[in-house]
């Protein structure tokens, strides 16, 4: 599904990613952990196509296509989803108009007719229930005045509507209380399937108590320095990131 080879990326001429290699197969859940500044969010944003990041070397193949050659919206329509660490607030864009456009754009791309109003409403309500939000949210403006937890649940709602092939969660768990965290994890678990993969970027092991990944990778200084199964997360939680820095810090200089 996703194949990342020797990926190097800069922001403002500063090299952040220094050769990432990663293979994600259909149905797999991968977690990427690492200390702050290791390049986790950069990886998520490069995959989604944020323009501030410049890819200097390497390649990314998604569903057999060159991902780096695709526009941001093409990536989305091809089945790549990024849950933002900091979702933007857009006053003036109603949730209902936003979500309807998401659904209809995907239908149009697949050659389907736009959804009629009653069916659309039914679909939106069903997915809003999935993330335990109030139906009244449809009348609000996009993320405007949403609490931190509401914003993250709104990201999960969009993921549920978009039914991506690969969902990247960029620190979706950071700053959430346990109730919101459970809702986020539930949404992911309900959407897990043999055709859908997840790349979960997180700083904390806690999320992985609720979403059990197939593989865990430790990112440090722009490289994946260690990969393993879920037990690696417990090791990280117990020992912290210091041993990673000690073990791999010197080598990377």
């Amino acid at each position: 599904m996703l194949s990342i080879q020797n990926l190097h990326a800069n922001i403002d001429d500063k090299q952040i990613l220094k050769g990432i290699n990663l293979e994600i197969k259909a149905g797999e859940v991968h977690a990427i952990m690492g200390p702050n500044g290791s390049g986790k969010s950069t990886l998520a944003n490069v995959l989604a196509g944020r323009e501030e990041y410049e890819v200097t070397e390497g390649s990314v193949t998604f569903m057999g296509k060159d991902l780096l050659d695709m526009e941001v919206d093409e990536r989305s329509l091809a089945g790549l989803f990024l849950a933002f660490q900091y979702p933007v607030e857009i006053p003036g864009v109603s949730m209902s108009n936003f979500l309807k456009t998401i659904v209809n754009n995907r239908r149009t791309a697949k050659g389907l007719e736009e959804l009629k109003a009653p069916e659309m409403l039914k679909l939106l309500r069903e997915k809003i229930d999935l993330v335990d939000m109030d139906h009244g949210m449809l009348k609000r403006f996009l993320n405007e005045g949403f609490s931190g937890g509401e914003k993250k649940r709104n990201e999960m709602l969009q993921m549920a509507l978009m039914e991506p092939k690969l969902a990247i969660l960029d620190e979706t768990d950071s700053g959430l209380d346990i109730d919101a965290l459970r809702i986020v994890a539930d949404a992911v678990n309900k959407l897990r399937s043999k055709d859908r993969s997840f790349l979960i970027v997180t700083h904390y092991q806690r999320l992985l108590n609720y979403i059990v990944p197939d593989f865990i990778h430790v990112l440090y200084n722009g490289r994946i320095v260690k990969s393993g199964t879920k037990d690696l997360a417990f090791e990280l939680e117990e020992r912290g990131y210091d041993w990673v820095k000690e073990e791999f810090g010197a080598a990377s200089v």
Binding site: E51, F81, I90, I102, N105, F141
Partner: peptide
Amino acid sequence: SVFYLKSRGFNDEQARSMLQHAFLIE
């Protein structure tokens, strides 16, 4: 904001038009 909308599958024109309209809604 443009990037956010495009990452949800809005094409560039759609995203910009929606944001311009949002600006005037107030």
